[in-house]
């Protein structure tokens, strides 16, 4: 942008921001230098400047100048619409603001968070702090998901469900991002299924694309995410119980999930509540040389199926 135009727009911004009442075009032309002598040039430049301000998300209001002349339009920027209210920040809080921003190991999110910090608290930060926290390092799609939620736009992506072999295209109204047990999830309204679904971001194939369409279904005000995550956890409610034998000192991930462990000479017997077979199949297959399923039979069969598949992929097996 040419220097002259930057200067003119800055002046326009000050004038609109500093006025308590909407200003007519004539008043703006009088107060802001640089709009030239011809009416036509002024109209053209002013329209362009106004659009440019709105492009920067600056809320330029258009309103009748007074109640007697609703055909005469004026312009102003309402301070409280556009600028941050004063927030008093203590020195300790300032430290945590900086820490929250530095946790993001993702360029776009850390830039946005740092910008947010300097808006909440414009004072230059003091000493750096060194609590080592790190968030979303090397993870894909997080930025796109958060941007789409902020913009209120529908997203589309290809997805492979757990223990499914087909890639299915999904059209989702994004509501939330969730970090849970080492995985990032997108929670949103699935337009094809007509219900709320969760998607693990590492099962998204290729890109996640924000569409131009506003979301159809917005998140209910009282939306309770824990109602969904509770069924994933080790909560015993409505859970199926698996009895699994493991060699002493082995199969650590299964031991962590167990609610009871009976120590034996050759095998320890674990009691593990679960909601979906998929929570256990992979873990049991991973340690299949030191693990046996005592019950249920269906779990045993599923593990046998995937272990056999792995062997045959490598040209071994029965």
């Amino acid at each position: 942008m040419a220097r002259a135009r930057t200067e003119r727009m800055l002046n326009l911004l000050f004038v609109l921001l500093n006025s308590r009442t909407p200003l007519t075009r004539e008043q703006i032309r009088e107060r802001v230098p640089g709009y030239g002598d011809s009416n036509e040039a002024f109209e053209r430049m002013f329209e362009r400047d106004k659009a440019a301000l709105r492009d920067l998300a600056i809320p330029v209001e258009t309103k009748p100048v007074d109640m007697f002349h609703d055909d005469v339009l004026g312009y102003r920027i309402d301070r409280s619409d556009w600028l941050m209210p004063e927030i008093s920040i203590t020195a300790e809080e300032r430290t945590y603001l900086a820490l929250a921003a530095s946790a993001w190991q993702n360029a776009q999110l850390s830039t946005a968070a740092r910008q947010a910090v300097s808006s909440v608290d414009a004072r230059e930060q003091g000493a750096e702090i060194s609590v080592p926290v790190s968030l979303a390092k090397g993870r894909r799609h997080i930025t796109e998901i958060l941007a789409a939620i902020a913009n209120g736009k529908t997203v589309v992506f290809d997805y492979v469900g757990l223990n499914q072999s087909e890639v299915v295209k999904r059209t989702i109204d994004p509501w939330r991002a969730l970090l849970h047990s080492g995985h990032w999830y997108l929670i949103g309204f699935d337009q094809d299924k007509g219900e709320v679904r969760t998607f693990r971001t590492d099962r998204i194939v290729g890109d996640l694309v924000e569409t131009k369409h506003d979301i159809l279904e917005s998140m209910p005000k009282d939306f309770d995410l824990s109602a969904i995550t509770d069924t994933w956890e080790h909560s015993d409610k409505d859970a199926t119980i698996a009895t699994v034998l493991v060699r002493p000192g082995r199969a650590a991930s299964l031991r962590v999930l167990a609610t009871a462990c009976e120590i034996g000479d050759e095998w320890d017997e674990l009691t593990i509540p679960y909601h979906h077979e998929s929570q256990l199949i992979g873990l049991i297959a991973s340690s299949c040389d030191v693990t046996r399923v005592k019950s249920p039979q269906s779990l045993q069969d599923s593990v046998t199926r995937i272990v056999t598949t792995t062997l045959s992929v490598h040209n071994f097996g029965k």
């Binding site: 941050m84 910090v117 808006s119 909440v120 958060l146």
Partner: peptide
């Protein structure tokens, strides 16, 4: 007039409050 910073965008608020 312009003595205060601009309000957070939704994305900025999400990044900061998320952190």
């Amino acid at each position: 007039a312009l003595d205060r910073p601009v309000k957070l965008s939704e994305f900025e608020a999400s990044a900061l409050l998320g952190g």
